[in-house]
Design a protein around this nucleic acid. Structure first.
Lengths: 176, 176
DNA sequence: CTGTATCCCAGCGGATACTG
DNA sequence: CAGTATCCGCTGGGATACAG
């Protein structure tokens, strides 16, 4: 049943990608009901404005003013996207009172938003490899000062490379 | 100079994000010349079509037909995006000859494309947390069968959490 | 200061028809 | 089979003006 099978045994210029295991899906099963988890993610954070607002939130931005100015987004776009991020549960608006002034709201990341940490790090790392100015914000480990890098591991704790990755279809005996 | 400073020392409902170190940038420096590495990434893989074509390439898709059918993209969009991905150096087109038929081209990921591995894994993992059908493609470690997860580490090898992350501005004394 | 409302344009992505 | 060309609707995002 879980018997390894190379889908295209010998290919020209073998550049390893995931090993496909079992009968692999085709289009019908794919697009059927949002099976692809990447597409699901992109429906929420697939826009430029969403990702850079989240970046800015990780950098510590909280107030509307801060978030728009430091992202360079227009008020309208920022407001719309922030509302969507709140609706989607990535941020919440918390009342906040500065001594002596009236109550404000601050946007703070929820756990779901904070769970994008590896995504943000991975995108930053990959973007750094594209060339361009090497200046900008750099993320480092507070403990030792070394820069961060995204890694892939299995839940058993092993480091996993692309060659060691198997892609298999998980069927969840759904009704119908 | 690199003296730690909490930008907003005590905030309501302290939800940790990155510690900002040094004078933090503002909008002018930001948008100036593409300093943000995330924005740089998004200019290349910021569209839905780009990401899911790359996903499909990781799954082993190579031929134009395969890539369009399994992504559900229209021919036109797939062709346009694939051309862009080739131009941007994420894929190459390799001639490929099936015994007995004429020469074809296959799209294969370059090293730069394959470097998106952590991004893909991180997005899949995050998307799985959004709910929806739990079926679909699952990535596992071929060695032990356990599912993959994205992790963040420093180059010294320590696991790094959000709380242990410092964001600092790297100025690269650029000309002008 | 924190948004909302409107107008506008560019780009994404689908559908269809056509080429080599 | 592997695209290209055209048309067209939708949305993202900027600008500007206005509101609480």
């Amino acid at each position: 049943m879980t018997h390894p099978r190379a889908d295209r045994p010998e290919s020209p210029e073998e550049r390893p990608v995931f090993t496909r295991v079992g009968g692999f899906v085709d289009r019908d099963a794919w697009t059927a009901e949002g099976w692809c988890k990447i597409e699901r993610s992109l429906e929420v954070v697939g826009t430029r404005s969403a990702m850079i607002l989240i970046r800015e939130a990780f950098y510590g931005g909280r107030r509307f003013d801060e978030l728009t100015r430091r992202t360079g987004l227009s008020d309208a776009v920022a407001a719309k996207r922030l509302k969507q991020l709140v609706d989607d549960g990535l941020m919440t608006q918390q009342p906040y009172r500065e001594p002596g002034s009236r109550t404000r709201h601050e946007y703070v990341l929820t756990d779901r938003g904070r769970a994008l940490f590896p995504v943000v790090v991975a995108l930053m790392e990959w973007g750094a490899g594209l060339g361009g100015p090497s200046a900008g914000v750099e993320l480092v480990h507070a403990g030792c000062g070394e820069p961060l890098a995204a890694a892939v591991r299995c839940t058993a704790g092993h480091d996993v490379s692309i060659e060691d990755t198997q892609a298999r279809v998980k069927r969840s005996r759904s009704r119908r």
